[in-house]
């Protein structure tokens, strides 16, 4: 762990690009909430013919890595088609920024999620979005790739932090391979709940710490 913000991150933090809102956006998303920390709002204008993102703006209530990622991701998405923009990952955004401190990657994921959600919102308005998916074990595992392991700076799935996942009748149990009094236990728990609770068919999320 370690490493602080590099110059590029600081530069974007000081002078973020594409800040603001758009009147009558074609796509809009608000990810995160002030209650759980960071929040990003993202606005899109999309050419209905070419499906190209013609304008994009964001606002951030967040830390430096959140602001910098919001800025870089809007620059990366501008001019791309929505299909291309959907493929942008937070790893790519972080790379474009010359790297982010491991501990901070979770703040940057929010900006990427906001972009994807804004595109989904556009698709829904256009009637081209996919159907509401049922929350299966696979879906849960996919969502968990958006939860960071702050010790590694990569997601909890890839870093083997998830012991197992159980999905039953709208109730999800996530077993985390950590002790419950670990330094990051409550931050990770909060992050997992945040990613799963908003799903339409999820009633209960239980995060259990089963030891490393």
């Amino acid at each position: 762990m370690g490493m602080s913000y590099n110059e590029k991150v600081i530069e974007y933090f000081k002078n973020p690009k594409n800040v603001g809102t758009l009147e009558e956006p074609d796509g809009y998303a608000k990810e995160g909430s002030p209650a759980c920390g960071d929040m990003v709002s993202l606005y899109l204008k999309v050419d209905d013919e070419t499906r190209e993102i013609t304008d994009i703006k964001f606002e951030s209530y967040g830390c430096a890595s959140n602001i910098a990622t919001g800025s870089i991701i809007t620059e990366m998405a501008k001019g791309k088609t929505i299909e291309e923009a959907k493929e942008i990952t937070w790893q790519e955004a972080a790379e474009e920024l010359g790297g982010l401190p491991d501990l901070k990657t979770h703040c940057s994921v929010l900006a990427v999620d906001a972009l994807r959600e804004a595109i989904r919102n556009y698709e829904e308005r256009q009637g081209i979005g996919e159907e509401k998916r049922e929350t299966t074990q696979e879906v849960v595992e996919e969502r968990l790739t958006h939860v960071m392991n702050p010790m590694k700076g990569r997601d909890v799935m890839k870093t083997g932090l998830i012991d197992s996942v159980e999905v039953e009748d709208g109730s999800i149990t996530v077993n985390v391979a950590l002790e419950s009094d670990h330094q990051f236990a409550s931050a990770i728990k909060e992050d997992i709940e945040e990613k799963l609770e908003p799903r339409w068919d999820v009633e209960k999320v239980v995060v259990r710490f089963v030891g490393g």
């Binding site: 600081i10 000081k14 920390g37 960071d38 830390c63 979770h106 703040c107 330094q183 990051f184």
Partner: peptide
């Protein structure tokens, strides 16, 4: 961070600032 760039050192209770998030 902004205050630091202006030469002022303070601390915050924000999760983002803490070592345990």
């Amino acid at each position: 961070l902004h205050l630091d760039m202006r030469g002022i050192a303070v601390s915050t209770g924000s999760a983002c600032f803490s070592k345990s998030l």
